[in-house]
Design a protein around this nucleic acid. Structure first.
Length: 103
DNA sequence: TATTTGACCAAGA
DNA sequence: ATCTTGGCCAAAT
């Protein structure tokens, strides 16, 4: 099966209030293709129930959302996470280590 | 087959 | 803290 399918399946396991990173996902899937993971999220399977907003960059910054890497879409992603209980300091996640979900 | 393209990352300057 | 550089790898072209 394709990496994308595995990525989506894994992503659905991230609970509300926590996040994962592109790199973490790749690690959990036993591959080094963290960059490809980004491609996958971007293609936006969007399907109703794929929490692609819970996947962020490894330094705690947002990464991208809905094809954009800055601007309105990004703030949208941030507010979604905020609503789920993730706190922010500007465009970086606060207490990143504690909020990061480990598989 | 080969090339191009990123919602990436770590290390330098 | 911010920017560049080189390395990465699956998917789409």
């Amino acid at each position: 099966m394709s990496l994308s399918e595995r990525a989506y399946r894994l992503l659905k396991k991230v609970p509300k209030g926590k996040v994962t990173t592109y790199k973490e996902m790749a690690r959990a899937l036993n591959t080094k293709a963290y960059r490809a993971i980004g491609q996958i999220m971007r293609h936006n399977p969007d399907a109703p129930h794929t929490p692609c907003h819970r996947c962020v960059a490894s330094d705690g910054s947002i990464g991208g959302f809905s094809g954009q890497t800055k601007g309105k879409e990004i703030s949208r992603k941030i507010s979604m996470l905020k609503k789920e209980g993730v706190k922010f300091e500007g465009n970086r996640i606060k207490n990143f280590e504690k909020v990061l979900y480990r598989f």
